[in-house]
């Protein structure tokens, strides 16, 4: 036993030493799922060869989008377990550990090239970015704050849809967020909705589809029903590219497809085209 153990630790030490000697080299990336090359991944999580869009965390997105990253809002919204759902508490704890977030969202107040905005992003690594009460509340507070301050609102969606573990409370978030957007829209607020991989289910069927301007990231899966459910329903395979960002553009549900490294400049242009409105009386 002792011998096996020490042989193992020695082996680890040798491996670690080898790694250290090679640290100066560019680490070999696993092959890109789009171009198959072992190319470096950029700071915005794009393949440096073909531009493939890797998943990116909500926090990193907003860090890169906002001048100096902005200021975090609403970080303390508690996640709820209204159904007392088996093992949900453990799942939440694991997701918090993995992402460092309280739930599947980041909201910030900040500026894009000097223009103040409220920006929110959903976190795909936190239970697939699903919307339960905490995400719905964060999105609603973001909308209401943008309305109160008369600031443009930007929401970057990445979500599998309603969070099943919170049952009907998750469904109610669709009504809550949509109602908040209706009030925001009626007051003249600008909402730019950005659809990233994936945007499906109850998020597509609520706030994500209610943008004044809707942008999508290349290659993003965007739809209501997931591909597996559709294939089961129709008893056939879906063609390649079904529900892709390009598909949504072709069918009239997206204004433009914007690569991630051009998003900031696209937003600067759009914000310039929507000048600041007078402060609320």
């Amino acid at each position: 036993m002792d011998n096996i153990f020490s042989a193992f630790t020695n082996r680890r030490r040798v491996l670690d030493a080898l790694k250290n000697t090679h640290r100066s080299r560019v680490p070999a990336e696993p092959p890109c799922p789009s171009c198959g090359q072992s190319a470096a991944i950029t700071a915005l999580r794009l393949c440096s060869k073909c531009g493939h869009h890797y998943a990116i965390s909500a926090a990193l997105r907003l860090d890169k989008l906002l001048d100096d990253g902005g200021v975090a809002l609403f970080e303390d919204i508690p996640s709820r377990d209204p159904l007392n759902f088996p093992a949900y508490g453990e799942k939440l704890a694991a997701a918090r550990e993995k992402t460092g977030l309280g739930d599947a969202y980041c909201v910030r107040e900040g500026a894009i090239s000097g223009r103040r905005v409220i920006a929110a992003a959903l976190e795909p690594e936190f239970m697939m970015g699903s919307m339960g009460t905490a995400v719905g509340e964060a999105v609603t507070r973001a909308i209401e704050r943008a309305g109160a301050l008369r600031l443009p609102l930007i929401i970057i969606s990445a979500s599998g849809g309603a969070r099943m573990q919170e049952g009907m409370f998750s469904l109610m978030q669709m009504a809550k967020t949509s109602a908040a957007l209706r009030a925001f829209s009626d007051s003249g607020g600008l909402f730019i909705s950005i659809l990233t991989n994936p945007t499906t289910g109850g998020v597509t069927a609520s706030f994500a589809s209610l943008g004044d301007v809707t942008l999508a990231e290349p290659g993003a899966l965007i739809g209501f029903a997931g591909p597996r459910v559709i294939e089961q329903t129709i008893g056939a395979k879906l063609p390649a590219g079904f529900q892709s960002a390009q598909f949504q553009l072709a069918h009239g549900f997206v204004d433009a497809i914007v690569p991630r490294d051009q998003l900031r400049s696209a937003l600067v242009r759009l914000l310039k085209l929507h000048p600041e409105t007078a402060a609320a009386v």
Partner: peptide, 23 residues
């Protein structure tokens, strides 16, 4: 949950109902 419903924007159609009814 069909392909033709997706092609015609099932998600947007539901979202817009929520938007209309809420106001």
């Amino acid at each position: 949950p069909t392909a033709s419903a997706e092609e015609r924007g099932q998600g947007e159609a539901i979202a817009r109902c929520l938007f209309e009814l809420s106001g």
